[in-house]
C-alpha cells in the first residue's frame, strides 16, 4: 500500500493541511492502523522535495504545522499513472485496489474501467495457471489451484465492487 500516492490522491481533491490529510487517511484507509503524524509530515516533505506537491507559507495559529500542501501537475500525472496501471495479480491486493477505487471515485475518474483492467490482469494470470495445471504434474496442479482460488476470490470482490460502484460513489462523495 502506497502512503505517498494515497496522500497525493487525497491532495488532488483540494489543498490540505497535514492534520486533515491524516484524519482523512485514517477515516478511509486506516482501518484500525492510523497513520502516525511523523510519517505524514515526512512523506509530505519528500513529496515536496520531489516536486509532486508544494507547501504554501505557514499560516499563523495553533497546531504543530499550519502549512497547506497543494498538488502539482507532476503530482497529478503520478496519480494518473498509478491509478491506470493494474497491480500485479497476487493475493491480498484488495487494500491497494480498494484505495484506487475510492480515490478514482473521489476524483470523478472512471473507476469501472480500472476494475475492468484489473479483472483482465487477473484473468490473464488465471489462464497462465490453468495452462500450467493442465500440462503439469499433480503437485504443479495443486500449487496452481491454490493461486487460482485466491485469484477467484479477488475477482469476486472486483465483480461485486463493480456492481456497487454507484453506491460506493455516494458514500465516499461529498
Amino acid at each position: 500500500m502506497s502512503v505517498p500516492l494515497t496522500l497525493l490522491g487525497l491532495l488532488e481533491r483540494e489543498p490540505s493541511h497535514g492534520y486533515d490529510l491524516k484524519r482523512e487517511y485514517d477515516t478511509f484507509f486506516g482501518r484500525g492502523k492510523p497513520l502516525p503524524f511523523g510519517q505524514v509530515y515526512a512523506t509530505l516533505s519528500r513529496l515536496a522535495r520531489d516536486g509532486s506537491v508544494v507547501a504554501a507559507e505557514a499560516e499563523p495559529g495553533a497546531g504543530p504545522d499550519r502549512k497547506r500542501y497543494v498538488i502539482t501537475e507532476q503530482g497529478v500525472s503520478e496519480i494518473e499513472t498509478w491509478l491506470t496501471e493494474p497491480v500485479a495479480a497476487e493475493p491480498h491486493l484488495q487494500t491497494v485496489l480498494f484505495v484506487k477505487v475510492v480515490l478514482a471515485l473521489m476524483s470523478g475518474r472512471p473507476a469501472e474501467r480500472y476494475l475492468d483492467t484489473q479483472r483482465a490482469e487477473h484473468m490473464r494470470r488465471m489462464r497462465e495457471l490453468t495452462e500450467l495445471r493442465r500440462g503439469g504434474s499433480l503437485v504443479d496442479a495443486l500449487l496452481a489451484d491454490h493461486g487460482l482460488f485466491h485469484l477467484e476470490a479477488d475477482l469476486r470482490w472486483i465483480d461485486l465492487t463493480t456492481a456497487r460502484l454507484d453506491a460506493l460513489a455516494r458514500e465516499v462523495g461529498r
Binding site: 484473468m123 488465471m126 489462464r127 477467484e152
Partner: peptide
C-alpha cells in the same frame, strides 16, 4: 472465472 480461464 475458473471456467473462463480455459478460454483464449
Amino acid at each position: 472465472p475458473r471456467v473462463a480461464a480455459y478460454a483464449d
